[in-house]
Design a binder for these strands. Structure first.
Lengths: 98, 98
DNA sequence: TTGACATATAATCAAATAATTATATGATAA
DNA sequence: TTATCATATAATTATTTGATTATATGTCAA
């Protein structure tokens, strides 16, 4: 359980999770949002996947990530309190990942 | 906010917080519960205090720690899901900290 | 005031972490 | 099939972390 909270204990990962709460996103969407390198984002996503918090779906050349929190009420609850990323997600460049 | 979740992201600290949910405890109570060294416990308590999650009160030669979560609903919510430490706290040696 | 006990701090160290750059893999489109 | 784009992995590095031992501080009781 602390392993999952550890995932929230990093600003970038908390932002990733809050963003995925709005909708599923591909890696470059998250690069735009976070302002860190693409491999950096991929590393975080790998950890989140290992912790069982996200899942990936390839769609063409893009890989979309989304939350898998059905069986994790504590993480779900925690994310309720995270600042909304609605705005930032809506303002993503439309020419990415479509 | 991720700084506070980081506090929950360590097994020892999560256990400390769950234990303090039962009642206030002194350092050696927590040494017993956690099975790590006294300085180790003190270090974790220092971080928890710095994060604003606990406060200390000296009572004679003992220092009691207790939760300060009134203004942290997210941490409060998170701890709802942590396994109860009721048993372990009740089974503490009575000859400690009285 | 000295000794015992409770706690804090300092110093140290191995391991984990988060980031980067360089490179590899995988998919699509020309 | 080759170039391009999206993503993943490898290698590297600086920093943080969690633990330990040794020592200092603080409180009380004899």
């Amino acid at each position: 359980m602390s392993e999952q909270y550890k995932m929230l204990g990093d600003k970038s990962r908390l932002t990733i999770l809050a963003s995925l709460k709005v909708r599923e996103l591909c890696v470059y969407d998250l690069v735009d949002i976070l302002g860190i390198s693409q491999p950096g984002v991929s590393q975080h996503l790998r950890k989140l996947k290992a912790a069982g918090l996200v899942t990936e779906t390839r769609k063409g050349q893009w890989v979309y990530y989304s939350l898998t929190l059905e069986d994790k009420p504590h993480i779900k609850a925690a994310l309720e309190f995270a600042p909304s990323m609605q705005q930032q997600v809506e303002q993503l460049k439309n020419d990415c990942c479509q």
